[in-house]
Every structure is written in C-alpha cells, then in structure tokens.
Amino acid sequence: MGGYFSDLFSGTKSLLDGMWVTLKEFPKRPVTLSYPHESLKMYARYRGHIELIGDEENKPNCVVCGMCERACPSGCIHLAGEKPEGGKKKVLTSYTLDFTTCSLCGSCVESCNFDAIRFSNEYNLASTRKEDFIIDLLKRLEEQDK
C-alpha cells in the first residue's frame, strides 16, 4: 500500500514531464526542408555515380588502362578504346556505367591513376525504366560543357 500513492504521484509527474518536453517543441521552427521546393547543397565529397573528367578541350583524361573495370566489385563499368592511326595513346571510344548494379563504393575512382574519373553530385536519380540507368559517360561529358 505504501507504494500505491507514491507510484501514482511519480507516475503522473513523469507524464507531465514528458508533456512539458513536447510542448516546448511545439512552437519551435521545423527542422525539415520541403524537399522539391528547397534542397541541400551536396558535400564536396558526396559520392554520386561516377563521371569522366575532361581536359580543356573536353577530351577525356582516360587512357583506357581498364583499372576501374577490374576494380569494380560488381562489374558495372564497361569501357573500350582504340589506338588511332599514327597516335601513341589509346583513345576512349565508349564508357558505360551500369548504374543498376553499381553500389557506389568508389573503388573505381580510387584505382584510377590518371585523374580521369570522379564522383558526380547527381542524386536525383529516379526512373521507371531500367535503360535510364545505363549511363553513357562519354556522351555525358560531351554534353556537360556545351
């Protein structure tokens, strides 16, 4: 019986304490953003899907060594290049990223010794078609600087 009333009072007090906490939150400004109308700036290190880095003439830095292709755990990078006649270096002819299997681990960027790929800041990736996620990075690079 001794605990009967003390239980009642301490219990009621704890409930009032909790209500005081939520009441204090009531007039505060919301901490959320209404997303499509406002959005955050992405961090410089944000890991989006990869993109090619071009030089001044918008030619890719890539030398088609294929390190990124080998480093990729899920095999989502496919690149091809050919040696132009008379040229010494291989020239990139296609670079596709299959974003459907990409896990954004960044192994490819780390493995690149030629400063040819980096992470993009793209985060608005949504589509109902699978083909939209098979990204031609070479085309993307060409379109980027236009």
């Binding site: 704890s14 409930l15 909790g18």
Partner: peptide
C-alpha cells in the same frame, strides 16, 4: 531530453 521524455515515462517503465 530523452531521459525526461522517454526513460522516466511511467508507461514505458
């Protein structure tokens, strides 16, 4: 704040 709102709450206890 959590201690007040949740931990001490009689219902939760």
């Amino acid at each position: 704040m959590y201690a007040k709102l949740v931990t001490g709450n009689i219902i939760l206890m």
